[in-house]
Design a protein around this nucleic acid. Structure first.
Lengths: 174, 174
DNA sequence: GCCAACACCGACCAAATCAGTCGGGATTCA
DNA sequence: TGAATCCCGACTGATTTGGTCGGTGTTGGC
């Protein structure tokens, strides 16, 4: 499973807005420059976020974007849904056509995906934009925190690689 | 986020093998017919599952595939990794190139994805093939179970559609 | 010894999705 | 008027997805 750049960029935009607080709108050009993201591409994402009611735009000179709610009130699940559509799309019986699965109900795969969906939805609903913004990478972080985060990340990467490497080595043995 | 047909098909194949028990190998042609899946495509997936050590093949006439371990010993996380690679791929600092993220560590998006990864890995590691096979859609299920599963599924679908629909209605108001 | 049934493998292919770019509007303020 | 901004649809090249096709290797049965 993959998380697209849409989500990454979208979250970054919202995080920068959340950190700025309510000091008036922030232009997309400014955000794009600060975060080193492609401006034209961001326009699309930000349009989706606006249509989902997560941020409001003010036009004209000195215009820009603001969060339409407090960061504590914005669940990550909303952001991901706005940017990527359904949290989890199942191949058999997609969300839009429930009847498309002609297999016997309850279907084993349905139940499995239900569990995965709940795990995903649970964490993304429990996490708010404020949580993410609070974690975030402004300069003033004690080295201990940085080290711990790096370690966590390494563990995650290792876990991801484990199965892949095993498959490769099995292949090489033959 | 989307679950590919690879995973769906792969799980179905393994579930049918798990239900069959240790009664000798089952031919892919048989599985494909029973599950109504494209045989030629399955060959690819099954090759990955074999290389990952999840099932063993016997060639020649009356050959086929068997689970190489008991269904209780096979975690869903292994299956998904064998079929789709890393459980969760992050855009910034992908699993194969840790240093690709030049943003300040700890980066807010890293931490967020870490949480999502843990949720995903947790449920997929906790679930075994035996669990999924036990749930599964043989005919003899009491109506109460079928009803409850259908309701769960409907809730999931509704939750998925909610945000999308809201966005649409907001758009229509303008 | 041959044939049928199976696993195995690489190449190929059409359609969809991703990650953007481009060009042109519409609004607002100075 | 003009600059800065949001807004929108069309386009594009690369990659991924979901397969198909043709051929090879292996095994048991007649």
């Amino acid at each position: 499973m993959k998380i697209s750049t849409r989500t990454e960029y979208g979250v970054r935009v919202l995080v920068t807005l959340a950190r700025r607080g309510a000091e008036g709108p922030l232009s997309l050009t400014g955000i794009a420059k600060a975060e080193k993201l492609p401006h034209a591409y961001l326009e699309q994402l930000v349009g989706d976020l606006r249509r989902a009611g997560l941020l409001t735009a003010t036009r004209g000179q000195a215009g820009g974007y603001q969060l339409s709610r407090a960061p504590e009130e914005i669940q990550l699940a909303e952001i991901v849904r706005a940017l990527e559509g359904p949290l989890l799309e199942m191949p058999c019986a997609g969300p839009d056509n429930l009847e498309s699965c002609d297999r016997p109900q309850p279907c084993s795969v349905h139940e499995l995906f239900q569990r995965v969906y709940e795990a995903l939805d649970g964490t993304l609903t429990a996490t708010t934009l404020a949580d993410v913004a609070a974690t975030a990478g402004g300069p003033p972080y004690p080295p201990s925190v940085r080290r711990r985060a790096a370690e966590q990340h390494a563990v995650m990467v290792a876990a991801n690689n484990k199965q892949t490497n095993r498959a490769v080595s099995v292949q090489e043995q033959a």
